[in-house]
Design a protein around this nucleic acid. Sequence first.
DNA 1: GTAACTGCAAACGCTTTGCACCAAG
DNA 2: CTTGGTGCAAAGCGTTTGCAGTTAC
Lengths: 137, 137
Amino acid sequence: MDSWVKKLNSKGIRCTAMRLAVIQTIRKTKKPLSPIQIFDLTRQKNPKLGLVTVYRTIEILEREGLIEHIHHFDNCQTVLPVGEGHQHVLLCIKCGAAVHFKGMELKNIFDQINKETGFQIKEHWMQLAGLCPACKS
Amino acid sequence: MDSWVKKLNSKGIRCTAMRLAVIQTIRKTKKPLSPIQIFDLTRQKNPKLGLVTVYRTIEILEREGLIEHIHHFDNCQTVLPVGEGHQHVLLCIKCGAAVHFKGMELKNIFDQINKETGFQIKEHWMQLAGLCPACKS
DNA sequence: GTAACTGCAAACGCTTTGCACCAAG
DNA sequence: CTTGGTGCAAAGCGTTTGCAGTTAC
């Protein structure tokens, strides 16, 4: 939590009680959350929170590279804290849990694609879904 | 084009002039299109087309597996005809062109992830972006 | 002739903006 | 005390729905 506050403060962004509550909801929940989910969860302890503050906090956190949007078929508005370094996201299709895993070696694949299609790959985005260890059994 | 009409007719879905015009726009344009882009492009030749028809046609085509949504950062509403079999999408970050390429062998990677994380991968979704051969030079 | 399709207008839900008040540094 | 943050209400925007008229098969 400290590192987030420090980073935000260094940009002149203040960490108010409401903003901290929103951040805590995002960080402690282990699955991607939509704005309205963050709103409902945070309001359980902070009934005065407004939905607008959630939107504005999401905007700031994403701009500062602390959270990222997760895209899953028709559901593209949920956010998740980013992983350390470049990582890919792994979602459980049963319980919704999300974990990051270290980016595998994809460079060979990109070289192969370059040979086949002539495309020079600049960005890649991979997301996997399946059953987490708990839901598998 | 015939195969699309045949598939739709077999489901009791009619191919009207407006619907065919929308389908043609989607098929002949080589990049992902948003509903409003499809609307504008199709209306150049069919000024009576309504935006609602575009939305309803997109819904049908996606349900029948003929088109798919492309997700690209904040831009998740564009559609593209699907590739043959399981393919991944390659987008040009300069001209917007989209091409499909045959899914590479990812099974080894998934086995490795399973060992590391305990996740059993059921779905994967990968999208790449870069410079197409024309835009590279 | 029946069932599907059409465009229009209205409704809907999510997101953003304007504003007066408040609070962090 | 200055600047950024807050909630509320309203506006904005993309998408969906209701409906009466139309068209494919």
